[in-house]
């Protein structure tokens, strides 16, 4: 199995200047994700699971370690060091991120929100909207909502729109941060089926699930994270 992502000794901490505080988020994370497999991150709240995903996506700047990604043309890139333009290019073409929350244009219809990743890749509007309809239907988003901006949707509806948007372009590496947190069991089953289908297509996934059952059903590997050393300890270490 081809290894798509290999993280070595990743750490992330935040330096808050105004409070002169150093807040550790995750430390010494090692993991790998293979094509067509799902690696699940587990651990208590505050263990830095989301931070790992955000470091991979460069929403956070990693503080240390390496994030080696093998891109579509076989080159290995350290995402911790990649240039901004390289990151944008990878986000555009290869790496997708589905978060708990939907960040999108407040005035776009749900259908357009979902179709957008395909449009920016140069797909024509008809095809993109066709696929968006399929996915929205599959994820049981009521059809009456498709033309409405998702801002007014319920949490579960928003999350489904978000998932559809993340899945539509079939990235090589998909980052999932509690994608089913507010879904009902029936829809969750649909999502699980969908993710399994995507895995069979060879998409590599790094995921956080709120429910252990989902880890069991979808995870090929499980990585357990522990909360990093407390702030005071770290500051003392720094001081000494």
């Amino acid at each position: 199995m081809e290894t798509i992502l290999k993280i070595e000794g990743l750490s992330k901490h935040f330096l808050l200047h105004d409070q002169t505080k150093l807040i550790p988020s995750c430390a010494n994370v090692d993991l790998s994700v293979n094509a067509g497999q799902l690696t699940a991150l587990v651990g208590p709240t505050g263990a830095g699971k989301s931070s790992v995903l955000k470091c991979v996506y460069r929403t956070y700047l990693p503080s240390g370690g390496r994030i080696l990604y093998r891109d579509g043309s076989g080159h290995s890139i350290d995402l911790a060091q990649a240039s901004e333009h390289q990151m944008l290019q990878l986000r555009h073409a290869e790496i997708g991120f589905v978060t708990q929350f939907l960040h999108c244009l407040p005035r776009k219809s749900a259908l357009d929100v979902v179709a957008e990743p395909l449009l920016t890749r140069g797909e024509n509007r008809e095809v993109a909207q066709g696929k968006a309809r399929e996915l929205l239907a599959l994820l049981r988003v009521p059809e009456r909502l498709w033309a409405v901006p998702p801002a007014t949707f319920s949490g579960g509806e928003k999350q489904r729109v978000n998932l559809a948007r993340g899945l539509i372009a079939r990235p090589r590496l998909l980052l999932l941060d509690e994608p089913t947190a507010s879904l009902d069991p029936a829809t969750t089953d649909r999502v699980v089926e969908l993710l399994q289908a995507i895995k069979r297509e060879g998409v590599a996934m790094l995921a956080i699930f709120h429910h252990p059952d989902l880890v069991r059903r979808l995870g090929d590997r499980v990585i357990e994270l522990a909360p990093p050393v407390a702030v005071t300890d770290l500051l003392e270490t720094c001081a000494s």
């Binding site: 200047h17 105004d18 700047l61 901004e84």
Partner: peptide
Amino acid sequence: ESGLTDQILEDPQHAYTQR
């Protein structure tokens, strides 16, 4: 400071940007 916009907004590095 410069960076990807979501990084600047979620993980600003410089004291001024953080403020």
